[in-house]
Amino acid sequence: MPAAVPHGFYTDTTVCIGCKACEVACKQWNQLPASKGGAPQLSGQSYDNTLRLSGTDWRHVKFIEDFKTEDRSGGRWMMMSDVCKHCVKAGCLEVCPTGAIIRTEFDTVVIQSDVCNGCRACIAACPFGVIDINPANSVAMKCTLCYDRMKLDMTPACAQACPTASIQYGPIDELRDRAQKRVATLQAQGETRAQLYGADTSILGGLNSFYLLVDKPEVYGLPANPELPSRNLAASNAFSAIGAAVMGVIGLVSFRKRRMDRFAQQGNNE
């Protein structure tokens, strides 16, 4: 049994070759169904036929074709294996009304499928668009970071299958040190855009699945400054309370007048 310290993924996008072994391993281990009965579907978008994370695709290899200039000079073809970020401050966990979403002893975020009732609040709350309903069991599902394997001190299926060590698994502190060294190496080699996304606490208190990117997060389909949904709670309720007070006064003015009129009339008669 491993010590219960925060564990997670460090994904180095510079060494991803887009083989999709992670997608396959994830589907196989977690027994996730194929979409549309496994019939071949070609999206026409590069080599990406998965297109997005969903209730049945907990890993998604993105293919980013960056050929902006006409002569294609400086063109890049980037790949990134996307997954749930297991945020330290998780929006999904924050809003879940049933308690189905829990934080594990490894600081990861897991949905208990026997508790979830499919209200879908977590889907709208996730700033990364990770969660979706699995049509096979009609509950919200996403990467568990192979919680079942973690408890047995095993590496998650995707990281185990990754042939280039683009997906690395381990204690978060160790992964951060490793990633920072890799950024330093890349920058020394001239890749000045190399940066870590989610390794520090600036994004949602830290992402337990963080990334090494060589461009702005938006290029990889990641929000630059994701926030918790609760940022709007106090203001929404405050405006609501003000509105209720205003409408209460309007109600008093509108519905009380007759009684006041009667009092006034009685006064005049006297």
Binding site: R52, R120, A121, I123, A124, A125, C126, P127, F128, G129, V130, I131, D132, I133, E218, G221, L222, P223, A224, N225, P226, E227
Partner: peptide
Amino acid sequence: MIDELYSASAHWT
């Protein structure tokens, strides 16, 4: 682009 565009639809309709 605003950050909220990277979230997914909750299918509340």
